[in-house]
């Protein structure tokens, strides 16, 4: 293996920053691609990194760019199967791609997420579980920030309703 050129700048900063960002984001992006039902989630995550690195124009939010690219590539991969209209919510059926969620969330939290309206689930996932900002989520989903906020607030309302109907009991993970 060649020694990395430490003077090179990357969208994440210097090479060391890139290595750290790659180590942090790569598993998450693979899981994200898998949630969209991608056949080759690793390839898609790697391709997203290459696309980001080969860009000449700087990217304001590299993490958002990666998530958005993974989302697009995953949906494109499914296109020949005539399932291009599938979104994350549809793909996230129970038992479809459980390993992606198992990495991050407990079973109870997964169940709670599944009961949410599919429209709001993705925004909530990206905001809470992936830790992305409202602006980044807007870039990924290609919707206005106000829409992202609306979806998150509605998801919150649904979660509250859920807790009220189940007697308000919830277990801390």
């Amino acid at each position: 293996m060649q020694a990395p050129d430490t003077t090179t700048t990357t969208p994440f900063g210097d090479v060391a920053d890139f290595h750290q960002a790659f180590a942090d984001l790569y598993p998450r992006l693979v899981a994200y691609a898998r949630r969209y039902g991608a056949t080759y989630p690793e390839d898609i995550a790697q391709e997203a990194f290459v696309i980001l690195m080969q860009r000449e124009e700087p990217v304001d939010h590299p993490a958002a760019f990666l998530y958005g690219t993974v989302r697009t590539l995953s949906l494109t991969e499914r296109r020949p199967m005539k399932n291009q209209n599938l979104s994350l919510e549809v793909v996230m059926e129970p038992g479809r791609a459980p390993e992606a969620e198992d990495l991050l969330l407990s079973r109870e939290i997964r169940e709670r997420m599944r009961t949410l309206s599919p429209t709001f689930r993705e925004a909530l996932w990206l905001f809470v579980v992936e830790g992305l900002s409202i602006r980044e989520i807007g870039e990924i989903l290609e919707i206005p920030e106000a829409t992202v906020k609306t979806r998150i607030h509605r998801a919150k309302a649904q979660l509250r309703d859920q807790l009220n109907t189940s007697g308000g009991a919830h277990v801390m993970a």
Partner: peptide
């Protein structure tokens, strides 16, 4: 922050070279 394993570093460098 995730741990930087040699495999991850190799993969990251490979992707950077590809870019």
């Amino acid at each position: 922050k995730a741990q930087l394993s040699p495999e991850v570093l190799d993969l990251a460098e490979e992707l950077r070279r590809e870019a």
